[in-house]
Simulated scan of single mutants.
Amino acid sequence: MVEHFNVDFVVTWVNGQDKTWLEKYNKYSDEDTLDVKNARFRDFYIFQYWFRAVEKYAPWVHHIFLVTDRQVPTWLNVDNKKLTVVDHSQLIDAKYLPVFNSSAIELNLYKIPSLSEHFVYFNDDMFLNRPIKKTDFFSKSGLPKDTAGLNAIQPMFDFDYIHENNMRIINQNFNKKEVMKKHFFKFINPVNMELNIYTILLFFWPRFTRFFDLHYPYSLRKSKMKMVIQSNHSAYVQTMNDRFRSKQDITIWLVRYYSLVNGEFSVRSPRVGKIYDLYTNFDAANKDIRNGKHKMIVINDDANIDHKMFKKISHSLRQTFEGKFPDKSSFEN
């Protein structure tokens, strides 16, 4: 039976160049030991094109929730009936504020007032790139669309500890052999394409080492997210106590992992999107934006991008997006 349900979009955004925000950040910045400070909070001034893309390519979206820390883009039409600006203080206990830890912020998204059961979570560097359907995110029966692939943790950076934290919880609560047997055709599936190779190589390893994290917009169910977070309360509290990202954190990926091991997802090709590092693949990202090769793209900042290069990339991205979306959306003044 086909269920009729609404799908909301949730997007988080920060302008790290804003003076008021910077004053608050600088008060606590000595605690920021894991993040790359010059790349984590930069704004390329292209966020209005996120809204133009949504309006053009996903007009079916029920509502958009913009989650910020007392910031609203000057161009944003806050009177749009399909838009609600949500402040951190509406989701997060005051004792944890201010918080600059994206992992901590994301763990509270299910608390957004009036959020639909089915929602898609975007970082502000994740863009719709051509027409997309509700069924690209959820099956007709309401299961999140996702790609299951096994992967291995390859320690190099402090951030790799976070993968280990998520996987420890999965291994404590699920038996890999039973999961792989029960959901074999979701982990080994022609739709998974090249990820099948990695999964086969790691198939008989006694415990889960890691899942492939396809850094695309996340299809989530509010009730399931609430269950996962509340079932791992101590890990949640540990993350919330870290004002900045820390080795001890868990992430929203844990919610996705629960869906994978429970088989509560519908298989989707990894080719639905593409991730571009703006330092190494800026030209390719620009080309994809112009041509719309992938339905979704992610354009990641990079710590190797200095101020001069940042300005050049920001200007070029604005030109490319303006060429693709020349008309203002109803979300702009």
Rank of each mutant, 00 (worst) to 15 (best):
Arg70Trp: 01
Pro59Ile: 11
Phe119Ala: 05
Lys82Tyr: 06
Ser114Phe: 08
Phe100Ser: 15
Ser103His: 15
His88Glu: 06
Lys134Tyr: 07
Val61Gly: 02
Val61Asp: 03
Leu83Trp: 01
Trp75Gly: 14
Val61Ala: 06
Asn129Gln: 09
Leu109Pro: 00
Val67Tyr: 00
Ala58Met: 08
Leu128Trp: 07
Tyr96Pro: 03
Lys95Trp: 05
Tyr96Arg: 12
Lys111Tyr: 08
Glu117Val: 02
Phe122Val: 09
Ile64Met: 05
Trp75Ala: 08
Gln48Ser: 13
Phe65Leu: 05
Asn129Pro: 07
Glu106Gln: 15
Ser116Phe: 14
Glu106Ser: 12
Asp87Thr: 11
Glu55Phe: 10
Ile132His: 07
Asp125Ile: 06
Val86Ile: 15
Val54Gln: 06
Tyr110Ile: 02
Lys81Glu: 14
Asn101Ser: 12
Leu83Asp: 07
Asp69Trp: 00
Val67Gln: 01
Lys134Phe: 08
Glu106Ile: 10
Val99Met: 14
Ile112Pro: 00
Leu109Lys: 06
Pro59Trp: 13
Ala104Asn: 11
Val78Asn: 05
Trp50Cys: 00
Glu117Cys: 03
Trp50Pro: 06
Thr68Gln: 04
Gln90Asp: 12
Tyr96Thr: 08
Leu107Asp: 02
Arg70Asp: 13
Asp124Asn: 12
Glu55Arg: 06
Pro131Trp: 08
Leu76Cys: 08
Asp87Gln: 15
Ile105Glu: 01
Met126Asn: 13
Phe127Val: 01
Ser103Asp: 13
Ile112His: 05
Val67Pro: 01
Ala94Glu: 14
Thr84Trp: 01
